[in-house]
Design a protein around this nucleic acid. Structure first.
Lengths: 120, 120
DNA sequence: GTTTTATATAGTAAAACTACTATATTCAAA
DNA sequence: TTTGAATATAGTAGTTTTACTATATAAAAC
């Protein structure tokens, strides 16, 4: 029902697109989800998520450019964390969806997807 | 708090990434949002959103491949609609976020973004 | 001082996306 | 049966992403 009352503004569409696009990569989703537990160093992400270090840095750099993560430096280590609750909100949204899919409340089967919608 | 209880499954991450990435384009967000009002023909989208027809078809094809939209053909016209509530859920999530940003409840200012998180 | 450790950066080839133009296809209409 | 309307497709040049390898930096540890 958030359809007509909360019309997505043109300016926001740009931001939303950029955020969604950036979040649209398996590794980055994993990283963001991992960061929900609090700030982590590149090495922790690298080891715990089993991703190559340069790849991790690359993803983090992209996400930093797009304001998804921030970091603080301490000696030779960089501690990254989520930049905004916005990101968590989306992640939770995805989690909710997953829950409904797992519980069978929704069909995510596709190919068989039926959706008549309110066709007048 | 959907962190540890509802762990995002590896399989879902793939789907989520594909969906988010696909939604990560201004035109496609506009189209999806437009389709929330019910099914529309290519021509309607083309005219109402002021997007070139081939571009619209291109986006719709991609979104169909990624199971975001479905369509039914009637004569020479194609009626497109959203394939799953999943998509609406995400859109609503984005709308909510926008609402909070507009109301100043959150800062989306970035660059100034502060986020200490629960640093132990 | 020299060697690790922790990260960022450069460089790059292959793949995917974007935005267009031109054209084919299929119905509907005259 | 020719025309026009509604869409899909093909083709393509330019731009981003991706995924790696190699390397530069800077702080720590010896």
């Amino acid at each position: 029902m958030t359809t007509d009352q909360t019309k997505i503004s043109p300016e926001f569409i740009q931001n939303a697109a950029r955020i969604l696009k950036t979040l649209g990569h398996p590794d980055r989703i994993k990283i963001v989800e991992y960061l929900e537990n609090g700030e982590k160093t590149v090495g922790q992400i690298h080891r715990d998520l089993e991703l190559q270090q340069p790849i991790v840095s690359q993803h983090l750099k992209m996400m930093h450019d797009r304001d998804i993560v921030i970091f603080r430096q301490e000696g030779t280590r960089y501690f990254y964390s989520l930049a905004n609750n916005f990101i968590i909100k989306i992640l939770n949204c995805m989690s909710d969806v997953q829950g409904k899919l797992n519980s069978g409340e929704w069909d995510f089967d596709f190919s068989t997807t039926s959706n008549q919608k309110e066709i007048a």
